[in-house]
Design a binder for these strands. Structure first.
Length: 491
RNA sequence: GGCGCAUUCGUCUAGUGGUUAGGACACCGCCCUCUCAAGGCGGAAACAGGGGUUCGACUCCCCUAUGCGCUACCA
């Protein structure tokens, strides 16, 4: 049978990197085995559903390069892929359970349930639905149950967990997991608003959508035995389970916004490459070899093995993501980078520049930044003349003869042809040697004048990209406007 | 509290009874150098603790500790 897996988020907010990793592992597993990767929206909680969340999830996954074979946005033979559109199916299946005695009606109000829990807390016992003291099919006479239902009294359907037995399943990543049914709650399956809970909807959908492997977060381990019970009650073949280790904040707490950005969208907005983010999260909890860090999506697909997924939770380390992104920044083709830089340039309010120029700028600066848009701040002088100068830096290299040298150098540079780093370098070197000074004595002031900064790429390379006329213009205007101010300050 | 899952350098990890416990990020040092990076070379850095099993445990079993998860008419 062909592998079919699903990513089944509930649309309660933006897709975060934990969700991205779950989706990714499902995707990798499906593609590795030539199976199907399905998106299913689990919107059974009306209260928590947020508008736009589905769109965000789909958009982010698509940005990351994960394409679905079936889902609400692409259709498929087992739809609809949104749970709120499958209510009738869940109702029918709940009925099946009811008829088989695997489930029962309960009529307790929220207040009654709260009192029950309070009693249990006071008695020091684990909070758990007490089938025999509450108002349900077990305690109420049959005709009373019928009457309540006929009256339309608020009712839920609960799972009738067997009283004394053991429930176990095999997890691909963790091996055998066994729990006592005594520790399982009579979970609500169908809520009084007619919506199913996760447990019912999930099992029913996985069955009817022919899901073969359930790959999801570790937080689902405790409810899996209930799902096992449901499969048994329905008489359905069980999928295989694989529970992924959690992703954690640096302080080992569950991943959250408090510790910085966790939404995939945040990373995109900051200019991380999808390739880098995918590569990064793929290696959080799984490693194909350990002697290599950089993998393309097809390479990940080729080597992915669920059996090799780790059991322990992983802390998200931004520094490593930064390193990885910087690696991609250095190896991605310049044509693409130039194209991607354009929107950032526009956003920052800079004029349009030819792609060819952007490529040269990126080639010059990319190994000095970690994210593409940083080119705009690190190398702002490539797009506009410097407005602020690092005066401290110039002061360090100041000498009385400097103004004169600069004037002479201006004339010297005018005759440099072609204006390439090599020729510029030769001329500047011989210029400064003739005056018995070191190269740094002139390069640093020059850098300050042309870029406004103390750091940057090689000076001569920078000048070449900037172009002769721009260099001369900046040098000239510095001598005319800034230098007198500086000299006044120095005296 | 109950139940469950987990535990190799600060972090991500390799390792499946015999290794000088390997790699990567971050950190430190040196080299290169017009600055900053990048790059090269080197350094520091780990098997949670205790019992077993075994000729031999990071590897297998048990206990403890710690962390995390679940304990809803949320997923």
């Amino acid at each position: 049978m062909s592998v079919r897996v699903r990513f089944a988020p509930s649309p309660t907010g933006f897709l975060h990197i934990g969700g991205l990793r779950t989706a990714l592992y499902n995707y990798l597993f499906a593609r590795h085995h030539g199976g199907q990767f399905i998106l299913r929206i689990e919107d059974t909680d009306q209260e928590r559903t947020v508008p736009g969340a589905v769109e965000n999830i789909i958009e982010m996954l698509s940005w990351a390069g994960l394409e679905f074979d079936e889902g609400p946005h692409v259709g498929g033979p087992y739809g609809p892929y949104v749970q709120s559109q499958r209510l009738e199916l869940y109702r029918q299946q709940a009925q099946v359970l009811l008829e088989r005695g695997a489930a029962y009606y309960a009529f307790d109000t929220p207040e009654e349930l709260e009192r029950m829990r309070a009693r249990q807390r006071a008695a020091g016992v684990a909070p758990k639905y007490d089938r025999f003291s509450m108002r349900n099919s077990f305690t109420l006479p049959e005709d009373e149950v019928r009457r309540l239902l006929a009256e339309g009294a608020p009712a839920v359907v609960r799972l009738a967990v067997p009283l004394d037995r053991t429930v176990s399943f095999t997890d691909i990543i963790r091996g055998a997991i066994t729990v006592s049914a005594r520790d399982l709650d009579d979970q609500v399956l169908l809520k009084s608003d007619g919506f199913p809970t996760y447990h019912l909807a999930n099992v029913v959908d996985d069955h009817f959508m022919r899901i073969t492997h359930v790959i999801r977060g570790e937080e689902w381990i405790p409810s899996t035995p209930k799902h096992v019970l449901l499969y048994e009650a329905f008489g359905w073949e069980m999928p295989q389970f694989a529970h992924l280790p959690l992703l954690l904040n640096p302080d080992r707490s569950k991943l959250s916004k408090r510790h910085g950005d966790v939404a995939v969208e945040d990373f995109r907005r900051q200019g991380y490459f999808p390739e880098a983010l995918v590569n990064f999260v793929a290696l959080l909890g799984w490693n194909p070899t350990a002697d290599r860090e950089l993998f393309s999506l097809p390479e990940l697909v080729a080597s992915f093995e669920l059996e090799r997924v780790n059991r322990a939770a992983a802390i998200v380390d931004r520094a490593k993501l930064d390193w990885m992104n910087a690696q991609y920044l250095r190896m991605l083709p310049l044509e693409r980078l130039a194209r991607e830089l354009q929107p950032w340039l526009r956003e920052a309010g800079y004029p349009e520049y030819p792609l060819e120029y952007l490529q040269r700028v990126i080639a010059l600066l990319r190994e000095r930044v970690t994210r593409l848009p940083e080119i705009l701040t690190f190398g702002d002088y490539m797009f506009a003349p410097p407005r602020h100068y690092d005066w401290e830096y110039l002061r360090k290299y100041w000498r009385p003869e400097l103004p004169e040298w600069l004037r002479q150098l201006l004339g010297e540079l005018e005759s440099v042809e072609p204006f390439t780093a090599e020729i510029i370098g030769q001329r500047v070197r011989s210029f400064i040697e003739a005056r018995g000074a070191t190269l740094r004595a002139i390069v640093h002031p020059l850098r300050l004048i042309l870029t406004g900064k103390s750091v940057g790429a090689g000076m001569f390379e920078t000048m070449e990209v900037l172009g002769k006329s721009e260099c001369l213009r900046r040098l000239h205007s510095f001598l005319e406007e800034q230098l007198p101010v500086l000299q006044a300050q120095l005296e």
